[in-house]
């Protein structure tokens, strides 16, 4: 009879056992903040649909210190999402060949972050124009 009895180790708490996994869980966790922000906007949209008084109530709620603190936390979390999204991109994109050479990972991450900066400035410019 075989004496083999392969032992399968449990996976409990695996994400706490390596700093690399802790960071992974943190950047996966940014999804909670992305969802929270989308729901905030959804509430705003519903209030907009209900008319001027409802919309103004939502705007007023945005001016509370609690809302400011909430959005400050959202900003930090979603900024971290932006950073980690582009940081992993060299591993997720097919190789980009420029002039016969593979684009360096740092160039891809840097390019992504630059694109985010440009998109953000364009968005800010558009809102600024609408506001005038």
């Amino acid at each position: 009879m075989s004496k083999r009895r392969p032992y399968v180790r449990p996976m409990d708490g695996w994400w706490k056992k390596n700093p690399y996994f802790v960071e992974y869980m943190v950047h996966e966790g940014t999804a909670l903040f992305v969802a929270a922000y989308a729901f905030t906007l959804l509430v705003g949209l519903v209030r907009l649909g209900q008319g001027e008084a409802a919309w103004n109530g939502w705007l007023e709620a945005l001016k509370s210190p609690l809302s400011l603190a909430f959005h400050a936390v959202l900003l930090v979390a979603i900024l971290y999402h932006t950073y980690t999204w582009f940081k992993i991109m060299p591993r997720t994109l097919p190789p980009i060949i420029v002039g016969g050479k593979k684009l360096a990972p740092a160039t891809i991450t840097g390019g992504g972050l630059m694109a985010a900066l440009v998109a953000s400035l364009v968005l800010l410019g558009l809102v600024w124009r609408i506001a005038q």
């Binding site: 992305v34 400011l68 999402h81 932006t82 582009f86 985010a116 998109a119 953000s120 800010l124």
Partner: peptide, 21 residues
């Protein structure tokens, strides 16, 4: 993920911080 990475932070800043305050 791509859309929120590109414009997420700026949108939060605009709708939650810049305009209300």
């Amino acid at each position: 993920g791509m859309l929120s990475a590109l414009v997420g932070p700026m949108l939060v800043f605009i709708t939650g911080i810049a305009i209300p305050f």
